[in-house]
Design a protein around this nucleic acid. Structure first.
Length: 287
DNA sequence: AACCCGTGGTC
DNA sequence: TGACCAAGGGT
């Protein structure tokens, strides 16, 4: 049975990540999950550590301007997540008495918390029984059960049903199983060069048994970045993040030459609430 | 449903 | 070296 093999492997090989410590608070786990969305563990670790020392509770973050969250986010990427995390802190403080809600539906209602994050917090922080389907788990299940190198582009109900069917009955075991499968995908069953020789379930792996056939599905479109609005937004926001005071417009203009694109990106940042255009014509992180 | 949203590491 | 990838979510 793959369940026992993966649990046994995890017991030996799990990384000691601080948000996995028994003492980790639900809030610290929620913070880690928001930061880990599309961002590697190694880049999250130092930011999370500083963040938790400064804002150990939701209420402590909620008491600060959202711009402070954006600044402390640093270069993690996708800074709207910082805004959403701040909004989470406000919602938790105002609606939930400062405590991260334990109910899956209430978690899902928080800003920036989707299906994955709601399930992961309910599972990791509150030891509930949920299918936790992230990119790692989807890849492991695709290989192990479907014999495909990669999961479908977008999550299917078949994947969800498969993940639920594999979930151990007992909640505590299910919670450990969820993080164990994720860890297997992160350390062994990786996207690029899977370490099949070290895999605890190689004997059950449909993809391996089929000879590890190459991906024959639709080409997985890459993410271009150079020259995009995203890169431009990143440059503009970096100026404000690195400044201790509001900046004049020319300080923004110098970081991107295409004026049309630059204005569009700046408007987008303002619309997102990441940049505050002051009455005096200067720009600042939001208050 | 497809597209947008950052950043840095890897081979 | 440029394409791919990383604990997704919102619209």
């Amino acid at each position: 049975m793959p369940t026992e093999s993966i649990l046994a492997w995890y017991a030996v090989h799990a990384r000691e990540l601080p948000w996995r410590a028994p003492s980790a608070s639900p809030w610290s786990i929620l913070v880690s999950e928001l930061m880990l969305q599309q961002t590697p563990v190694n880049r999250v670790l130092p930011v999370w550590t500083v963040w938790m020392a400064r804002w150990p509770t939701a209420a402590s973050l909620a008491a600060e301007p959202s711009g402070e969250a954006v600044r402390a986010w640093g270069r993690l990427g996708y800074p709207r997540r910082a805004l959403r995390l701040h909004a989470c802190a406000v919602a938790i403080t105002e609606r939930h008495g400062g405590k991260v809600p334990t109910d899956h539906a209430e978690l899902l209602a928080l800003p920036g918390v989707g299906a994955y994050t709601a399930a992961s917090v309910a599972s990791f922080a509150f030891r509930q029984r949920h299918a936790v389907l992230d990119t790692n788990v989807r890849r492991v299940l695709a290989r192990l059960k479907s014999g495909q190198e990669h999961p479908p582009k977008s999550q299917t109900t078949a994947e969800l049903r498969l993940a639920e069917s594999l979930l151990p009955e007992e909640a505590e075991t299910a919670a450990t199983w969820a993080v164990a499968v994720m860890e297997l995908g992160a350390l062994i069953c990786t996207a690029r060069s899977p370490r099949c020789a070290d895999c605890p379930v190689i004997a059950q792996c449909a993809w391996y048994k089929a000879g590890k056939p190459a991906w024959d599905g639709p080409p997985r479109r890459g993410q271009t970045y150079a020259g995009t609005d995203r890169q431009c937004r990143g440059r503009l926001l970096a100026v404000l993040r690195d400044a201790s005071h509001p900046v004049e417009k020319p300080a923004l203009d110098v970081v991107w030459s295409d004026a049309v694109q630059r204005e569009r990106a700046l408007d987008g940042l303002i619309a997102d609430g990441l940049v505050d255009p002051l009455d005096d014509g200067r720009y600042a992180l939001p208050s």
